[in-house]
Nucleic acid binder design. Structure first.
Lengths: 201, 201
DNA sequence: AGCGTTCGGATACAAGCGTATCCACACGGC
DNA sequence: GCCGTGTGGATACGCTTGTATCCGAACGCT
C-alpha cells in the first residue's frame, strides 16, 4: 500500500476550511473548488475524501455541531459543583459569540440553520443538538428545585425554553452587530437574576 | 407610446413570486428564471423590470420589510388605547409566525438575514427595521413608567432588548418546528406577566 | 394612418458549478 | 524488485447561472 494519509485529519482540515469559508463569505460561497483552495489542496482531494457536495456539507455540519457541543461541555465541566444560577450562566453564556472563534462558529451555524429551514436533507443533522441542551437544562433546573436551590413555583420547561430562545435571539443580534457581546451577556444575567435570584458569590 | 403596463404592480408580482420561492425552497433557489416561471412570466420580463439580480434581491427584501412593517403597524393600530402590557403582547406577538402567511414571511426573513450576515450589500436594507421597533417599544415602555403603568425600577432599554431577542429566538424555534406557535406565545406571555404584571383584562 | 417608443418572447454566450475520467507517482507485501 | 493499491494532479463534460442581444408586437400621439 502507498503512503497512507491520515484520513481523519485530512477530512478535519477540509471541513475546517469549509467552515472558515461559510463563516466569512456564507454557505453559498462554499464550492468544492473554494474548499480545496482554502485548505491548500486540489479539487481532486476534496472529491477523494467526500463523495459529493452533500456529503461535504453534512460533514461540515457535523464538525460544527461537535465544536459547539465541545464548547458547551467544556465550560460546563470547567466548574462542576456550581449553583444552578452559575451553571445556567456558564452554559447559556457559552452560546453567545464572545470571541472571534465562537463568533465564526455562530455565523456558520446561522448559515446552516437558514438552509436547513428549507432543505430537509440538512435538517436532521442539527436539530437534535439544541434539544439535548434543552433536556439537560430542564433536568438541572428541576433537580435544583427539588433541592430547594430554585423557586419551586417555576415551570422548569417554560423557563428553559425561554432562556434558550433568549440566548439564541441575543446571539442573532450580536451577529448582526446591533449589540456587543457584553450587552448581550448583561441582558442574559439580568434575566437569570430575575428568575433564579442573584448569584451566590 | 405602447400599452403601458403598470410597472408598480408588475414589480410587486415579481417580488411576491421571489418571496414565495425564498420561503419554500430558500434564497439559493431564487434565480431569475425561477422567479419568472413562478410569476408566470418570461425571463426577459424579469430582466426588464430589474436591471440585475442584486436589484431583484434588494427589491424582494424591501417588499418583505414592508410586509412585516405593515403587519406590526396594522396590529398595533388595531387597538390604540391599549395598556402597555396589551400593546407589548400585540406587537411582540405579531413577530411570531402564527399563520401560514406570517410563517412564510418569517422564513424568507430568516433566509435574508443569514445571507446579510456575510454579504454586506444586503445588510443595510434590513438592519434599520428591528432598530425602529426597538426604539418604539422603548419609548412606549418609558411613557408607561412615567404614567405609573409599569414598574419604574425597570431599565426600559434592557427589557425591550430582552423581549425582542426572546421573540426572535422563539420565532426561530417555531420555524425549526421545535415548538408550535401556541407554545411560543405562551412563553412570551409568561415573560410579559413577569415583567409588566398580568394583563388588565 | 403611420411612426416611434414601450414591452416582452426567443435565443445566445461566457463563467462557474458538481461531477467524472485519465494518468502519474508513492510505497508496503510478496 | 516489482506490482497492485492508495493518493492526488490535470483536465474535461454537461448543466445552470447571470447577462446581453436580436427582433417582433402593441399602442398613444400627431
Amino acid at each position: 500500500m502507498p503512503r497512507r494519509a491520515d484520513h481523519e485529519q485530512r477530512r478535519a482540515e477540509l471541513t475546517a476550511a469549509l467552515l472558515r469559508i461559510a463563516s466569512t463569505r456564507g454557505l453559498q460561497a462554499v464550492t468544492m473548488r473554494e474548499v480545496a483552495h482554502e485548505a491548500g489542496a486540489s479539487l481532486r482531494v476534496v472529491q477523494y475524501y467526500f463523495a459529493d457536495k452533500a456529503t461535504l456539507l453534512t460533514a461540515g455540519l457535523a464538525e460544527l455541531a461537535g465544536r459547539l457541543d465541545r464548547r458547551v461541555r467544556g465550560r460546563a465541566a470547567a466548574g462542576t459543583g456550581l449553583t444552578v444560577r452559575e451553571a445556567f450562566e456558564v452554559v447559556l453564556g457559552s452560546i453567545l459569540p464572545t470571541d472571534d472563534d465562537s463568533r465564526a462558529d455562530a455565523l456558520a451555524w446561522a448559515a446552516y440553520y437558514a438552509v436547513a429551514l428549507t432543505d430537509p436533507a440538512l435538517g436532521a443533522g442539527g436539530r437534535n443538538h439544541p434539544d439535548a441542551l434543552e433536556a439537560y437544562l430542564t433536568a438541572r433546573l428541576e433537580r435544583a428545585q427539588g433541592e430547594g436551590d430554585a423557586p419551586r413555583e417555576l415551570d422548569a420547561r417554560t423557563e428553559v425554553v425561554l432562556l434558550l430562545a433568549l440566548a439564541n435571539g441575543l446571539t442573532a443580534s450580536v451577529l448582526g452587530r446591533q449589540r456587543g457581546a457584553g450587552d448581550a451577556l448583561h441582558v442574559l444575567r439580568h434575566q437569570l437574576d430575575r428568575v433564579l435570584g442573584p448569584p451566590a458569590s
